[in-house]
Amino acid sequence: MTRSNTLSIALPALVVLALIIAPLGLDPFGYTLRILCLMLLFCAMGQAWNIVGGLANQISLGHAAYFGIGAYSSTILFGSLGVSPLIGVFVGMFLAAIFALVLSLPTLRLKGHYFALATLAAGEVARVVANSWTSLTGGPVGISVPYRPDAGFWALQFQTVLPNYYLFLGAMILVSLVFWLVQTSAFGYRLRAIKENETAAEVIGVNTYRVKLHASILSAVLTAMLGTLYAQFQFFFDPDTIFGVATISVKMALIVILGGAGRLYGPWVGAAVIIPLEEMANSYLGNSIAGLSQFAYGVLLIVVILLNPRGLISLFESLRDRLKGRQRA
């Protein structure tokens, strides 16, 4: 094993260890813990998006649809039938797979911008349906997960945020593991072949349609699972938030692109930067001129992307390369 390989395993292991220990010193109800939770959740969401968007460069802007399906499935089942979210999560994952299948039939033949636009529209369709189908979703007013403080783990809700934190951490590691398995498998190589040149991939015998379809479904299923976890953390959501373009779809893509698309640790870096940045902008500027916080957040993002179009993770790599170069010299 080379030195750089040791580093790329040891560093993330250290990060995970730090994440496991981190909340022990924090207020279990607290604000810092909540920010860490959101960071882990969005990191996992970015990682799920990374399977299609990063590896195969299929820029989807409609992943909120899967996220919302996951959130609504478990919440409606729990609210109206009393089905535990532990079961509801699988219903949501199944429905998201079906939706991904149906959506993929027409959209996967599209290329580049056309694919992005079609998925964007699909997310919006989901939002409109959730807004209009009031008898099922509660409509535009939103839906609450019924509060059962004593039901414990079966209801997947807790008095403090701490259990949520470890759930999110587990989910983040799980999704990252899935991504790593895909990335290093033959399947992952086919996806990357599509990213490099779809026609060439076709010529050398890759069934590009089928590969993209499988990746889309896998990504959708993982996103839906995270949707359920989000619902059990936030306890209230409305169609405009859960199917939001800016709040979910674009944010998932942004985290990956900012961190490093197609890279295992891309979403880790992306989420670790974006979520605290957004929160700090609101915390420090939210009380001054209206909208200044979002403006500052936007400007910072533009600056980061301009400085590092290949993603922040490339910064680490160039740093590492420089260190290595020095050792050789």
Binding site: Q234, T241, T247, S283
Partner: peptide, 22 residues
């Protein structure tokens, strides 16, 4: 302690958490 909820419920809940714990 005045804070902006923006128009995003997730943000509003985060702000509430911040106010209570900090």
């Amino acid at each position: 302690i005045i804070s902006d909820a923006t128009s995003n419920p997730t943000q509003a809940a985060t702000v509430a958490q911040r106010m209570m714990s900090q």
